[in-house]
Design a protein around this nucleic acid. Structure first.
Lengths: 353, 353
DNA sequence: GGTTAAATTGGAAACGTTTCCATGTGAGGA
DNA sequence: TCCTCACATGGAAACGTTTCCAATTTAACC
């Protein structure tokens, strides 16, 4: 019997605002007002409606509401790969903030594929998402940018450069990779290193470009022959196999220090060094770009450039919420987050050869 | 004047199906049929509609469609923390599969908070999401389960035990942690270890329970005094500081081998061992549960229990898609994925004392 | 008490689709 | 040529809200 009842509730559709109106003996308009604004409703109606809604277990249908109000209470988040630790924490933090504001977050991985990026932007628009957090896979994907712009929904950029043409710059959360790279390089130069390799993916995107700029700036300001400044670009972190690092370290004039991004590239460099019998930091100094578990726990612990991924996510969510509240003009429209150098055990003076 | 107004509305709002109908000189019903089914439409209408839609850049409004069709093309994913590497790849893989099927995925972090879990389930239901992938934070959160059940949308469980009462078991993707733990323990016992510590969070959830069961089973089948089988439960991986591992390894009869979950607990154990001057694997054998970057790249490389997170995500998505297609009865309703022991350098025989 | 303003209320339109239903059109067979 | 029938089409209802507008009640003030 209870089985039957259960079955019924499963099958029977949920209570609508009409049911509540009927149960409370008022019109649907009054129910809507009572439940939402609370403005212009008498105490009696408010009470009766609340009681009826409670009794019927009424839950408003967001789909229907969305159709009318043109707002979905959902925000899209577009990154190349949510499983990448460098993105995962950003997504996590942004979701937390947005959820606190009553918004849901839909995520999509683009794998840096421009076509997929455009497809997802279109999907977001079709679904009328209220806003978008996005880290485009390339700063030159003009079509994607254009479609992003015509969407109507506010967009917040995650650590990417926006095309210059735009008159009013889009809100963005940027990380000061340039200063970070400069600090790290300066530190290594100060230790006596002259041949330093910077291992980072793509100059196609802001983080890579900025790091390279900071790297070169450090050489320039130290007034040192920059021929030892080796910039090794990787198409993506995936492509950097151990072999590449091996080639690098086998060179006649091998670098005495390496600055390596993320987890995969860093891992490749560390393994290559180990395979060649190079001790860290004795034979090779290493700085990680991004303070991952790997860097912190490795033996020896790896000196790392650290910035707060949580802050990136939070700031992005905040910027977006600000736009959604309609304050399109006022307030900060871009945040620049600092990068710190966390000193550990993986750096020392180069061996005098 | 009206021209002006028209222009305005054209710019502000997107083309609707009405606009397409007018442009093609047919009724809205015909446009809908032409664009969707393709059934019962003449060649002429199909052509004209397609042309008009193309010209106007028409994109259907999913919100409106959802209202009518009772389906949103979105599925929810509920885990404790998308930034946890053990979840991130699952989410990533599931999203990839679902996107290929034209579905969007909304994610939410519950931080293992039952209240938040329920709130998100309610939010998903209000939004009428088509389905839910969920890894509940506790197998005893009965209210959450109940609300999950009454949602109407198909649910796929990620590596959790479903309450027994249910007559028809829910679809689930399970990982064979029991067999994995047994294999690892057996391996260590075979090497001669008798005092082995299993460091895993919560027996509140299936993975922990299964691992403990497998761990004990290995001792039992080897007919060995199980007093050396140390199960160290952690409320969550967060709580396991390095200090706990230090206490463990300072004991008079310290374990000669450790099986440690994930990244944080493993890191804590490794650091503690290092701080105490214990060499791996000489003084201490270590097995990681979950093949993270840390395990693979650490020196020495850590022997690890590995299962495919991608397979978990893919299988979950597949199971859900199967339900969404209406095949509620047929087909596999649960998958059990294998766990492999990846032999590396972190295990050896214990020192004879 | 009467007049006016303000507050509350019910009814209906609107949001953009899909789908039902009745009508119209054509072809094919008698 | 007429009848039948399948098929194509237009019009309208429906999905569940919010919001506008007009109507009604209440409050306020003289």
């Amino acid at each position: 019997m209870s089985n039957m009842a259960l079955r019924m509730t499963e099958i029977v559709s949920r209570a609508t605002i009409r049911d509540v109106a009927r149960a409370a003996g008022v019109s649907v308009g009054s129910v809507s007002r009572a439940l939402n604004g609370g403005k212009n409703v008498s105490a009696r109606v408010a009470r009766d409606v609340a009681a009826a809604a409670e009794k019927l277990g009424y839950q408003p249908d967001f789909q229907a509401r969305s159709l009318r109000t043109r707002t979905t209470g959902m925000v899209g988040c577009l990154v190349s790969d949510v499983a990448n630790p460098l993105y995962a924490s950003i997504v996590q933090a942004a979701e937390a903030r947005l959820r606190d504001a009553g918004l849901l977050m839909v995520v999509a991985n683009t794998a840096n594929d421009p076509a997929r990026e455009r497809a997802m932007v279109a999907a977001f628009r079709s679904r009328r998402l209220d806003g978008i957090l996005v880290a485009p896979g390339s700063d030159e994907n003009d079509r994607a940018w254009r479609e992003l712009a015509t969407g109507g929904a506010p967009v917040v950029i995650l650590d990417r450069d926006v095309p210059q043409e735009e008159s009013t710059p889009w809100p963005a959360v940027l990380v000061d990779h340039r200063e970070g790279a400069r600090t790290a390089t300066r530190y290594l130069i100060g230790l006596g290193h002259r041949r330093i390799a910077l291992l980072t993916p793509g100059a196609r995107m802001r983080p890579g470009r900025e790091r390279i700029a900071g790297f070169k700036a450090a050489f320039a300001e130290a007034d040192i022959d920059p021929s030892g400044a080796l910039v090794c670009l990787q198409e993506s972190s995936m492509d950097f196999a151990q072999g590449d690092a091996l080639d690098l370290l086998r060179r006649e004039q091998r670098p005495t220090a390496i600055i390596a991004l993320g987890t995969r590239i860093l891992a490749g460099a560390l393994r290559a060094g180990r395979d060649l019998g190079l001790s860290v930091p004795g034979d090779l100094s290493v700085i990680a770009v991004g303070d991952t578990d790997l860097a912190a726990v490795h033996t020896p612990a790896i000196t790392a450039l650290r910035w707060s991924l949580e802050d990136v996510g939070r700031a992005a969510a905040e910027l977006l919420l600000q736009r959604l509240k309609g304050a399109s003009g006022e307030g900060q429209s871009r945040a620049l987050l600092p990068v710190d150098l966390v000193l550990r055990e993986s750096c020392g003076p180069p061996k005098t050869t």
